[in-house]
């Protein structure tokens, strides 16, 4: 696998506030990557840095082996659709698509037009008068029809209703299968999109606290429930991500359990269930972010 994006010890601070803090990560060619984290965790800033929209304070970013900043050759391979991207004042969807058609070498206009219909984006209304969900749909249309080898989508389905979100997941997957490329999408709403992601980065307070293959992650943590005493005995030695007590009952989210551990705990009368990705990430982001968790 070739690495298309490599970030090394990247920091971005604005007048003392650190938005991105010593981030290192690598993204390989052709995959769907998720950049997950709470609002304000640094997702957008990190994406802006990778797309060369923002200049790093310290550290390195390399895209196709070179800095993306002011590098026309590299940038021609990128589409970065920001959640808060403001299109020109008097643009209608037709103008956006026309501009995108001029800008992107691999632009598929027929596909773009079909997506506009599918998302029911009103063609006669000004883009700045569209609803939040429709505006997100405009970003999705441009981002996908661009067929850019590196496609970065910032909160692509924010404000979309359930039907539009389902369309988005289906279209993203189908188009990715037909035209494999590197897709990075950020979101703070994890549950629905989780199955589409091959790899996730979790960012919290500017730091990457989790960098793992989604499937490895799925088996890696468990929710254990039972009497306080037996739970405490059972989970000694594991990393506890979260714990709650009611009366003499205790529930913990523990990391690093192997299948045989789970079986042993179950026969000791404890309830053991694999933690969902959502549970795992929520408990991670509540943790002290100074420590990066390694996933076996």
């Amino acid at each position: 696998m070739t690495k298309v994006i490599e970030v090394n010890n990247l920091t971005k601070s604005y007048r003392g506030a650190t938005a991105v803090d010593s981030v290192s990560l690598a993204i390989e060619e052709n995959g769907i990557y998720g950049l997950l984290g709470r609002n304000g965790a640094g997702k957008t800033t990190l994406m802006k840095l990778v797309a060369g929209h923002e200049l790093a304070s310290t550290g390195e970013i390399s895209v196709y082996g070179a800095s993306p900043v002011e590098n026309s050759a590299v940038l021609a391979n990128m589409a970065f659709i920001r959640e808060s991207l403001r299109y020109s004042e008097n643009y209608k969807i037709g103008h956006v698509l026309k501009a995108a058609k001029i800008a992107f070498a691999n632009w598929d206009d027929a596909f773009a037009q079909s997506l506009v219909d599918k998302f029911q984006i009103p063609r006669k209304r000004l883009v700045r008068k569209l609803s939040r969900g429709q505006l997100s749909a405009v970003g999705v249309v441009v981002g996908l029809a661009a067929r850019a080898p590196i496609t970065i989508l910032d909160e692509p389905y924010i404000g979309m209703d359930a039907v539009a979100r389902k369309h988005f997941y289906d279209i993203l997957l189908a188009d990715y299968i037909k035209h494999p490329r590197t897709i990075v999408l950020s979101t703070h709403l994890i549950d629905e999109v989780a199955d589409l992601l091959e790899h996730v980065f979790v960012i919290d307070q500017g730091r990457i606290i989790l960098d793992a293959n989604t499937e490895d992650l799925r088996g890696s943590a468990a929710v254990i429930e039972g009497s306080t005493e037996s739970v405490d005995d059972a989970v000694a030695g594991f990393v506890i991500l979260e714990s709650q007590t009611i009366g003499t009952q205790k529930r913990v989210v523990a990391q690093g359990l192997k299948a045989e551990d789970a079986a042993r705990l179950q026969s000791a009368g404890l309830a053991v269930k694999p933690a969902t990705l959502q549970q795992l990430i929520i408990s991670q982001t509540n943790m002290d972010s100074s420590e990066k968790v390694e996933v076996a």
Partner: peptide
Amino acid sequence: VSLSFGIS
């Protein structure tokens, strides 16, 4: 918009 569309 231009920068979003991959222009330096």
